[in-house]
Design a protein around this nucleic acid. Structure first.
Length: 294
DNA sequence: AGCTTCGCCTGCTTGC
DNA sequence: TGCAAGCAGGCGAAGC
């Protein structure tokens, strides 16, 4: 479930491993993971990686092909269970470290087997550095295309750190969908997923079923809360519930800081009332029925 | 156009 | 113990 804080953590961790390096080879063994309209990654052989950045929940890698062709963007979306990891020498994936920390009973051989089975893609750099894409559930995607306009082509809106309060106010106006649903829409606001929408709405004391259009006057507050929650989650390296791992296989620790997500039945950290769980547009939604009144 | 539902995919959990 | 059903969820496509 890599959302903005998890992806930001991964990007920061990968930066020193990829920026400025030359790609010897880029491959995707599972071509069904290419998003519609994507070029094949083999085209990136010889390209120089200029930057790696987060774009909503996706990772954008800017590459300059040899011979002065137009700059390319390789966009990697991790879906739910995707990981980008840097293996150590001898193909010993540091993914192991995270599993050891989480107390997994699986043996080293089992973990290695799983990694191998689900390793769908790979970047190989001229200095021998590798970055592996591992994704058991295959919900992620790869997209390679011209960098110019890639964000629009992939329908990725501005994230809470980029969008201006006034712009959010205008986007909320007239919308009748529950705020929870709208905040999950990556074109509306990018970066938030189920966990951080619930945490943001709790911080802002907004009921998740509130029609978005009723929140025009609270747009600034909503944004402030989202930024605060996300910044803090980044500081803790993101939330590891099960699958999420940092680039070095380590886990995040924000799961220990969650106020409502996954805590149904437990006392609200603010008022003590039992946290409730409902389903909104097929997403489990956690909130405090006392603090977040409609 | 806006909103909702469905289906993709696989591993873990739950219930019989 | 074994098996099937249920569930998790980001997101695009389809449907209303």
């Amino acid at each position: 479930m890599p959302e903005l804080p998890e992806v930001e953590t991964i990007v920061r961790g990968l930066r020193a491993h990829v920026e400025g390096r030359i790609l010897r080879r880029a491959e995707l063994r599972a071509p069904d993971l290419y998003r519609t309209g994507s070029e094949r990654m083999s085209r990136l052989a010889g390209a120089r990686i200029e930057r790696i950045e987060r774009m909503g929940k996706a990772i954008r890698i800017s590459a300059v092909p040899p011979g002065g062709a137009a700059r390319k963007a390789l966009v990697v979306h991790l879906g739910m269970t995707g990981k980008l990891v840097v293996p150590r020498a001898g193909n010993d994936p540091l993914v192991l470290r995270g599993d050891a920390e989480s107390g997994s009973a699986r043996t080293r051989a089992q973990v290695l087997g799983q990694v191998d089975k689900h390793r769908h893609g790979r970047l190989v750099f001229s200095d021998g550095t590798e970055v592996w894409y591992v994704d058991p559930r295959r919900f992620g995607y790869f997209y390679l295309g011209d960098e110019e306009g890639v964000r629009e082509r992939l329908n990725i809106g501005l994230d809470p750190f980029e969008i201006k309060p006034r712009a959010l106010r205008e986007k909320l106006a007239g919308r009748t969908a529950p705020v929870k649903s709208l905040l999950l829409n990556q074109n509306f606001v990018a970066g938030l997923g189920n966990i951080y929408v619930d945490e943001t709405l709790f911080a802002a004391r907004i009921h998740p079923l509130t029609p978005a259009g009723e929140l025009v006057d609270r747009a600034g507050d909503l944004l402030t809360c989202a930024r605060r929650v996300l910044r803090r989650a980044i500081r803790f390296g993101g939330t590891t519930l099960r699958d999420y791992r940092k680039h070095d296989g380590g886990t995040g620790s924000y799961q220990h800081k969650l106020s409502v997500y996954g805590r149904d039945g437990e006392p609200c950290p603010r008022c003590g009332a039992a946290v409730d769980r409902i389903v909104i547009t097929a997403r489990s939604t956690h909130f405090c029925p006392e603090c977040q009144r409609r």
